[in-house]
Design a protein around this nucleic acid. Structure first.
Lengths: 250, 250
DNA sequence: CGATCCTTTGATATGTTTCAAGCTTAGTGG
DNA sequence: CCACTAAGCTTGAAACATATCAAAGGATCG
């Protein structure tokens, strides 16, 4: 007999319950969803543009990103997903994915047939609502990324990215400030923020010298959270967290 | 007795039927939706960040945009909406909008109570599906904008924006190539592409000199559609049109 | 312990912004 | 219908942020 916490699909429930309320029946229906657990190495594709994916993907551990590539071969990260995020493949009317999904670092994910998930959502309005809220939150993050890349300078962009992942990672119960595992290379941070890997490096050094963070060996330390947020023009409202996290530092 | 075409809400049906199939009952239900038609002057707000909007907004004529503002007061356009687009206010769990919606130029819109629309979607799965598809298409456009702003140079960004609006405008039956009314100022084009108004001006001049377009007096002329698409690294797949429009120029 | 991936560094090139002014067009009121 | 005004477009010169290229130094992993 499994408790909720030890179930492979537990992450989806933990995530949903951060924004929505689920009853026992809903939780049970979600846990009973058919799924296939797969482990992906860094860089491996979960979905390729033009694929016809039949499943949604739940991130169980590790990190996953969405991306698109320019005709010139330049990559832009569109989103980063972590523990509990449910990745809708976003197919066009022909059923083809319009972007790539890859593992940022080694990631364990569960493939859940879209139809099965849709069925549960139809039977349980609370699940439908929860899915809808999470989708909206994802859209909101995507808009903030556009603002970040379009209108902020390198220092702000990098600080903003650091802030976002810090909050999301904490929210997901993965790591706590001041120090936690950092999932991306500097090159990838550049691809997320519309910068060059080299310039990310220099910007990171500046943030280090200013005493805001330390970052090395796949690990960040936030030395001054309040100042980092200011540096990144970061306001967590766009993350659509239900509970308002009082800003930690005064 | 009104025909579909003369009805205020006709645009929503014309738009949906580009991607989805609706029966007579669905069309009727949509046309019977309660709504309030309002005309907005250029710049006027339809939704302000932190508002608690109770309605979706259907664009009947003119243009409308979504935007966010940086802490430093810089504006980024997040999306442009035209005839037939249904604007979901994207509220967070507290019911507050997370970005602004404003008229790009004089626009006539219909406010449709969210609950009424949700009711129709619940009664008619085809409507729910159509709404879902349109929402996905909007997400896809938003991702392409992120790629555009993050990884393309000024010439590509501007050409891409020109291509997108040309296609969407044609698709909506508003104007045909080679010449149609252009809805944005150069400043606004800059806000959409993460550039300065001044630089947009110079870039536009370059595209003019290269013989790709003419643009003046709120009107564009596409002189070389094939070359403009190449210049903008533009591929219409991300627009999720159902019918594949054969590229017009060889 | 060699190979590969990631980070760091320096010098230089480039694209884009900034500022500031003059010009054009469209809209408004007398 | 003209004059006036405001908004948008155009221009140039100079400053700045970021990219590019190339090479060296560290870390990580079989």
């Amino acid at each position: 007999m499994q408790t909720t916490d030890s179930h492979v699909l537990a992450p989806i429930i933990n995530k949903m319950e951060r924004r929505s309320q689920l009853g026992l029946a809903e939780r049970q229906a979600l846990l009973n969803l058919p799924c296939k657990v797969v482990s992906h190495d860094k860089g491996s594709y979960l979905i390729r543009e033009h694929d016809k994916p039949a499943s949604c993907i739940l991130v169980i551990s590790g990190f996953v990103y969405r991306s698109k590539i320019t005709g010139d071969g330049l990559r832009q990260l569109l989103a980063v997903h972590l523990y509990g995020d449910l990745i809708d493949p976003h197919a066009n009317p022909r059923g083809e994915a319009d972007h790539n999904v890859q593992a940022l670092m080694r990631a364990e994910v569960a493939y859940i047939p879209q139809q099965a998930l849709r069925d549960v959502a139809e039977s349980y309005p609370a699940v439908a609502l929860a899915l809808c809220r999470d989708a909206m939150a994802e859209c909101s993050i995507s808009r903030e990324w556009l603002l970040n890349v379009g209108r902020r300078n390198a220092r702000q962009r990098i600080a903003h990215l650091l802030c976002e992942l810090t909050v999301r990672q904490e929210e997901a119960g993965l790591g706590k400030k001041p120090s936690y595992q950092w999932p991306m290379t500097q090159e990838q941070m550049g691809e997320a923020t519309g910068l060059t890997g080299v310039h990310v490096n220099r910007t990171l050094q500046r943030l280090r010298k200013e005493g805001l963070i330390a970052i090395a060996n796949q690990s960040v330390t936030i030395h001054d959270w309040a100042r980092l947020q200011r540096a990144g023009d970061f306001n967590n409202a766009y993350l659509h967290q239900r509970t308002i996290t009082a800003s930690d530092n005064p």
